[in-house]
Each structure stands twice: as C-alpha cells, then as structure tokens.
Design a protein around this nucleic acid. Structure first.
Lengths: 111, 111
DNA sequence: TTAACCGGTTCCCTCCTGGTAACCGGGCCC
DNA sequence: GGGCCCGGTTACCAGGAGGGAACCGGTTAA
C-alpha cells in the first residue's frame, strides 16, 4: 500500500510525525492489529510503529483496545477515536490540494 | 503576531518546516521585505528565515522579487505565488479543525 | 517440553533540524 | 572616508527524530 518511496513524503503538508498520516489512513476502514499495520506500512520497524502509535494515543486520535477473548491470546487492536476520524477532513483537503498541484510541485523542485 | 510559545506548534498538522506556515500567513496580505517578516515572527533568526524562504522558493510557493528602484537601495520583496496562495485553502481547513478540536487536544495531552 | 509467534522494549547510532554567534559586501548618510 | 543598516552567509553546536539489531514475556501449537 505505502511504498517506501511513497510520494506523500514530498507534500509540504504533514500530519504528526513521519508515519502518523499513513497510520491514520490504515485505520480509516476499521480497527487493526499491530501486525496488520506493519504490512501496508512497508519498512516500518516495530519500535517506530510503537512510537507513532503512542504519540497518536497521547493526542487522543487513536485508542488501543486490548480485546481479550477467553481461551485466546489477548489481541490488542488500534482504532480511530471520534477526534481521529474528524482529522480525516483536513487530511482530505490536503490530499486534494497535493493531487491538484502535484505537477507544479514537481516542476518547482526540479529547478 | 506569532508568540514564541505560539500554540500552533501543538497542532498535529504542519505545513513545511517549523516556520513555513507562519511565513505563508505573513505573506497572505501582500509582499513583504526580509526585515518586515522578522517582526511578526518573533525570535526567528536571519539564518533560519533565509533557510525557510529558500525552501519555499524551491517548492514554488514563494517568489523573491528584487525590486530595485533607481537611486534607492535594492529592496528584495517576498510574495506568494499562485501555488502559494492555493495552499491557503487546505491550511484554512487545518486551522478550522484545530480551532474546533482544541479542547479535545489539550485534554488528551494532559493525561 | 520445546518451539514459534505476537507485541512490544532497550540500547546504540546517524542524520537532519533548528539555533548562536560571528562575519561580510553593497549602498546611503554625514 | 567612516559608520551604519540591510540582507544575508558561514562556521559551529545541541537536541531530537528515525532506524537497526538484539532481547523479552506471555500464549499457543506441535
């Protein structure tokens, strides 16, 4: 999903730290487990993912639910809070802008 | 204008480097000279302002016009390009979000 | 019992960002 | 000619962000 050379790194608009925006996108469609997040976020290490998730929790954008079923291993899942979902709106505005002006940005960078 | 402890630093949404968002805001109402930018951006040093302005130029958001009048000292002014003005839209969306959810953010940070 | 896996944590290292302080060339003003 | 201001540039430095590799405790599967 997110290429290591994901062009979103070129956009001047960023949400939180390096991975926060992508994490939020991954959680957009529902709760995900730690290992489920590592797949689309190609190349992220466990340490950095933990770090980013803790920061998002601290800001109240993401919540960690230790969903323990009896007889099974406890499976913590991460999901967006209402606040986290609300930030999708400005993020979408930023993405739309980046998509609209992508060529302008590339042209400017090259010279 | 921008306090050294400007709360905008707390927003998870950022445009460019530390000062880029504020510089763009300062240029919103028209061209400004180097020294005119240093006033509202309290505490910015010449070097860092130059750095940020060069980055904004490189991305095509700001243009530097050496406005030389005969008989006067050459007075370079910085102003937003069309691309630079267009980024105000997603910036406003981000600001609106931050204003709306300010209390939520503060609450989350405190705990 | 042992092995494997999941979800981390810890230590160490590197690079980038931002800041300080000093210096500097061109133009005007006296 | 001597300051002085404007608009920078040039070292140098400190802190933090990000990454690599190793380790680890609990649970389940063989």
């Amino acid at each position: 999903m997110f290429d290591p050379v994901c062009p979103s790194g070129l956009s001047p608009i960023r949400v939180g730290d390096k991975w926060a925006g992508m994490i939020i996108r991954c959680l957009e469609e529902g709760p995900r487990r730690f290992s489920e997040l590592r797949v689309p976020l190609r190349g992220i290490t466990a340490k950095v993912l933990t770090q980013s998730l803790r920061a998002l929790q601290r800001d109240g954008l993401v919540i960690r639910n230790s969903h323990a079923a009896p007889g099974h291993a406890p499976a913590p899942v991460y999901e967006l809070t209402a606040l986290g979902r609300s930030i999708l709106e400005p993020m979408n505005a930023a993405c739309a802008w980046a998509a609209d002006h992508w060529d302008d940005l590339l042209d400017a960078r090259e010279s």
